[in-house]
Amino acid sequence: MSAQTSHSVNKPGGNYLPVIVHNGIAYVSGQLPRRGDELLCIGKVGADVDIALAQKAAAFCADLCLDAIAHTLGGDDKIAQVLKVVGYIASAPGFTQQSQVMNGASDRLVARLGERGQHTRTSVGVAELPRGAPIELEMVVAIHP
């Protein structure tokens, strides 16, 4: 799984928008590690998916969030600051390293945006995610006027 920054946006899986901008803040809907209808990995972290693959999936989801913002706003340069990232990790029973998984997303954001990619973060272990995905990532971003 490699990072793709093509500024293409996955079609939503339901009746919602990938990004809404309101009062200088972009709210990005949860992104699964997928291109089109194909998930790049499936399963629970700590059982079917190891931490290294889950970190790659988290980084890919971060790229998808940035791609959705860039598509909506016309480029990454419109991002003033990533404010908050929330990661939901489908976790096997007893798995407690959700924060370690989320380091994949955090590292990618800083690598792509520098200081503008630094953010607050929440990592949540969940029983299931849509389509059997191991991770879903959502983001809140301040944008330049």
Rank of each mutant, 00 (worst) to 15 (best):
P18W: 07
D77P: 01
C65A: 14
G36A: 00
M139V: 06
P12Q: 12
C41K: 02
A59W: 02
A58I: 04
G14R: 12
E138H: 01
G104C: 00
T120E: 12
Q81A: 15
D107Y: 07
H144W: 08
L66M: 11
I25M: 11
G94I: 13
P33Q: 03
I135W: 01
G75T: 04
E138C: 08
V85F: 11
D107F: 06
I143P: 10
V49M: 10
P33I: 04
H119K: 03
R112N: 01
R131E: 12
V140Q: 14
L66S: 05
T122S: 12
E136A: 12
Q31M: 08
A26Y: 07
L40Y: 08
A3T: 15
A57F: 01
Q97L: 14
N103P: 00
H7I: 12
S91P: 04
Q55W: 00
L83P: 01
V110K: 01
E138R: 13
P130C: 09
T72G: 03
D37G: 09
H22E: 14
T5P: 03
A127F: 04
P134W: 02
A142Q: 15
A3L: 14
A47N: 11
Q81S: 11
R34W: 05
C61D: 00
G114M: 04
A92C: 06
G74M: 10
V19K: 08
S99P: 00
K11L: 13
V124I: 15
S6M: 10
G87C: 07
R108Y: 03
L137Q: 06
A70S: 14
V85I: 14
G114Q: 06
E136D: 08
V140H: 13
L129V: 10
N15E: 12
S2D: 15
V19Q: 09
N23A: 11
K11N: 11
D50T: 10
V110D: 00
D76C: 00
G13H: 11
R131I: 04
S6Y: 11
L113E: 07
A47K: 04
L113R: 04
I42C: 07
K56G: 06
G87E: 02
G75M: 07
R112V: 13
G125E: 00
V140D: 03
I20R: 13
H119Y: 11
S91I: 03
Y27N: 06
I135R: 07
G125V: 02
K44M: 09
Q97Y: 08
V82N: 09
G94F: 00
V85K: 03
N10T: 12
T72S: 14
G125N: 08
H71G: 05
L53K: 05
S6R: 15
Y88C: 06
S123V: 10
S6V: 08
L40T: 01
Q100C: 01
K78V: 02
M1C: 13
T5S: 14
G13K: 11
K78S: 15
H71Q: 08
P12Y: 09
Q97R: 15
T5G: 15
V19L: 08
G13T: 13
V126Q: 05
P12V: 07
Q118I: 03
V28M: 04
D48V: 02
M102K: 01
A52F: 01
L39Y: 03
C41M: 02
G104D: 03
Q81D: 13
C61E: 01
Q97V: 01
